[in-house]
């Protein structure tokens, strides 16, 4: 009897907390999504001046069951317009990785929509660790704004570290690396060589579960984790406010 009573209270509290979250996060949706004000590349570039620092690599972590590639494409294009050149998209099951073609199409559409006449000067390339980017064509080299989008899944997390451990032990056995050289800075260089991406500066985590779901354990050492309830229907203002939050934090690097 007592146990049931306690459990009942537990449910009530959990429900209250849920509602509180809903109410607190609602305004972002209610105010910004219906606003059909067109976000253009020039306004975004204006906004980029508001940011004290612009991340070089933005990680997008989708911890939701349903995906909207259209909204993801929007987030990617906004990021590129802000001047971010490295973007990675992670979902645990690799659903987005599998649908890279559709995502690419969505990005083209969203690019046309947002960049309008400037769109030809932007080059957004999609690739994944199993499918490295094709050699840049001569034509894309001349584009002033170039961005790489890396699609990631669970395999790029712990498994990459295990691969590295194997690689390192191979190097040690063959005498290419000394035992005492297995130190973070050295290993990090090896990771950088294989990834071609800097560590993410900020991770935009979409979904209500506060968990990383295996997201890049090695690389996310100093990454700012900014949570948002969902990527579906995300508005530009909401996206910008999260980057503003990133820009306003200062890291002390242990000091």
């Amino acid at each position: 009897m007592r146990a049931y009573f306690l459990r009942l209270i537990h449910y009530v509290i959990a429900l209250a907390e849920f509602l509180q979250h809903l109410v607190l996060r609602m305004p972002l949706y209610a105010i910004f999504t219906p606003m059909k004000l067109k976000t253009t590349a020039s306004t975004i570039q204006e906004d980029s001046k508001l940011l004290k620092k612009i991340p070089s690599h933005v990680g997008i972590l989708v911890a939701e069951d349903e995906f909207s590639l259209k909204d993801l494409a929007n987030v990617i294009v906004w990021s590129v317009a802000l001047g971010i050149s490295y973007i990675s998209v992670y979902d645990i099951n690799g659903e987005i990785k599998r649908n890279s073609v559709v995502l690419q199409r969505n990005i083209e559409k969203s690019k046309l929509d947002i960049m309008a006449q400037d769109q030809s000067s932007y080059d957004i390339q999609l690739f994944s660790t199993s499918q490295p980017a094709a050699e840049a064509t001569s034509n894309s080299k001349h584009k002033p704004h170039k961005a790489d989008v890396l699609l990631l899944c669970i395999e790029d997390g712990h498994k990459r570290i295990v691969d590295m451990a194997r690689h390192v032990s191979q190097m040690v056995t063959s005498g290419m690396l000394r035992q005492e050289d297995i130190i973070p800075s050295r290993i990090d260089n090896l990771f950088q060589e294989s990834f071609h991406f800097p560590d993410p500066d900020v991770c935009l985590k979409f979904g209500n579960t506060d968990c990383l779901f295996g997201y890049l354990p090695w690389q996310m050492r100093l990454t700012e984790i900014i949570s948002m309830p969902s990527h579906r229907g995300i508005g530009y203002k909401c996206f910008l406010s999260s980057l503003l939050r990133y820009a306003n934090t200062s890291q002390r690097f242990g000091k």
Partner: peptide, 14 residues
């Protein structure tokens, strides 16, 4: 809101 090099491996499903 960062991990600052703490339990990176262990906190992937935390």
């Amino acid at each position: 809101v960062r991990l600052s090099d703490f339990l990176l491996w262990e906190s992937a499903y935390t």
